[in-house]
Amino acid sequence: MGLLTAEGSRRIARAVEDAEKSTAGEIVVAIIPESDDYAARELVFAIASGFIASVIMVIFSEQLIQLFDSLLWIDSALLFPLSMLAGALLAGSSAYALAQIPVLDRLIAGRHLMTEAVRRRALRHFTESGVYDTVDRTGVLLLVSVLEHRVELIADRGINKMVAANSWENIVAALVKGIKKGQTADAIEKAVRDIGGILAEHVPPRADDVNEIADVPTELEKGS
């Protein structure tokens, strides 16, 4: 299932089209489930969980050996190391599975790593989508990364030098607030209009202006 409904995508595309009628700038919207798979952090979490499980079993080794002796006709000297290995593997695999839950994944990844991942993914799409290569260098990319609860706005140098940083920051803050309320399409649509207003003020349309980049929002693949 897409991150945006078909109607939401159409509304955003119309908002981009309408905004660009008043400016020579370009607005590109992209949305991605997550900007990184954070596999390394998840693996470390799983290994650490397995290690902790082993330590706990060592601490309670005497009680566990007594339990094995009372329940099973097996040499506990052999069974205990095997049970430690099984316990560590079970704890590690369970931890790795739990790490796929978004709220836990965010805790494991950490704020700094997620911020860097979203920034890198936005910069990559800024290049791949051609936002960096508009005629007047006045393209603006708006990327929403769902897992991280992050929004990255990158304005090319042609427009960025004309606009105060807090103007972009206010747009991002309002967008994040709207997404948290579950109003993703509405919030993106408003952000597009606000970006369009800034572009119209500083970069009016040219007589030979053409639409350089498609208006439809791009839904990127997870971690791509």
Score class of each variant (00 low, 15 high):
residue 181 K to W: 04
residue 20 E to F: 09
residue 189 E to R: 10
residue 53 A to Q: 13
residue 184 T to Y: 08
residue 147 L to H: 09
residue 5 T to W: 05
residue 57 M to N: 07
residue 42 E to T: 10
residue 212 E to D: 11
residue 122 A to L: 07
residue 142 L to R: 10
residue 189 E to M: 08
residue 137 R to Y: 00
residue 104 L to S: 00
residue 65 I to Q: 03
residue 112 H to F: 08
residue 148 E to L: 12
residue 47 I to V: 15
residue 15 A to G: 10
residue 193 R to Y: 04
residue 2 G to T: 11
residue 200 A to Y: 05
residue 9 S to R: 15
residue 95 A to R: 12
residue 17 E to A: 14
residue 223 G to Q: 10
residue 67 L to Q: 06
residue 86 A to D: 07
residue 184 T to N: 07
residue 191 A to F: 09
residue 45 F to D: 06
residue 114 M to W: 01
residue 165 A to Q: 15
residue 99 A to E: 05
residue 165 A to H: 14
residue 24 A to S: 07
residue 19 A to S: 14
residue 219 E to S: 11
residue 105 D to G: 08
residue 190 K to W: 02
residue 82 L to C: 09
residue 220 L to A: 10
residue 210 V to E: 04
residue 98 L to K: 01
residue 126 F to R: 15
residue 75 D to V: 00
residue 35 S to I: 12
residue 220 L to T: 06
residue 106 R to W: 01
residue 167 S to R: 02
residue 10 R to K: 09
residue 80 F to G: 06
residue 156 D to K: 13
residue 205 P to A: 15
residue 176 V to S: 12
residue 32 I to W: 01
residue 174 A to Q: 03
residue 222 K to E: 08
residue 1 M to R: 07
residue 62 E to I: 11
residue 40 A to Y: 11
residue 135 V to R: 14
residue 224 S to E: 10
residue 19 A to Q: 12
residue 158 G to S: 04
residue 26 E to F: 02
residue 75 D to L: 02
residue 28 V to G: 07
residue 105 D to Y: 02
residue 187 A to S: 06
residue 127 T to P: 00
residue 36 D to F: 04
residue 14 R to E: 05
residue 136 D to S: 05
residue 204 P to T: 04
residue 135 V to A: 08
residue 92 G to P: 03
residue 175 L to C: 02
residue 38 Y to W: 07
residue 152 E to I: 04
residue 156 D to C: 13
residue 5 T to Q: 05
residue 146 V to M: 15
residue 206 R to I: 00
residue 83 S to H: 06
residue 53 A to S: 15
residue 122 A to E: 09
residue 10 R to Y: 01
residue 50 G to I: 13
residue 84 M to W: 03
residue 87 G to A: 09
residue 78 L to Q: 01
residue 68 F to P: 01
residue 113 L to K: 13
residue 128 E to H: 11
residue 45 F to K: 08
residue 39 A to G: 03
residue 36 D to A: 11
residue 219 E to N: 11
residue 24 A to W: 00
residue 8 G to Y: 08
residue 123 L to T: 06
residue 218 T to K: 15
residue 90 L to P: 05
residue 151 V to N: 02
residue 184 T to Q: 15
residue 45 F to C: 05
residue 176 V to Q: 14
residue 23 T to D: 09
residue 49 S to N: 03
residue 75 D to I: 01
residue 33 P to M: 11
residue 112 H to Q: 09
residue 160 N to D: 12
residue 30 A to I: 14
residue 178 G to Q: 11
residue 153 L to E: 04
residue 106 R to H: 04
residue 110 G to T: 09
residue 74 I to K: 04
residue 160 N to C: 11
residue 113 L to H: 12
residue 110 G to Y: 07
residue 208 D to F: 03
residue 75 D to F: 03
residue 28 V to Y: 01
residue 104 L to N: 00
residue 28 V to A: 13
residue 78 L to S: 00
residue 69 D to M: 06
residue 137 R to C: 08
residue 92 G to Y: 03
residue 47 I to K: 13
residue 221 E to R: 12
residue 64 L to Y: 12
residue 87 G to H: 09
residue 108 I to Q: 00
residue 67 L to F: 06
residue 211 N to G: 05
residue 190 K to Q: 07
residue 48 A to E: 10
residue 153 L to P: 01
residue 121 R to T: 08
residue 8 G to Q: 10
residue 116 E to P: 08
residue 90 L to I: 12
residue 204 P to E: 04
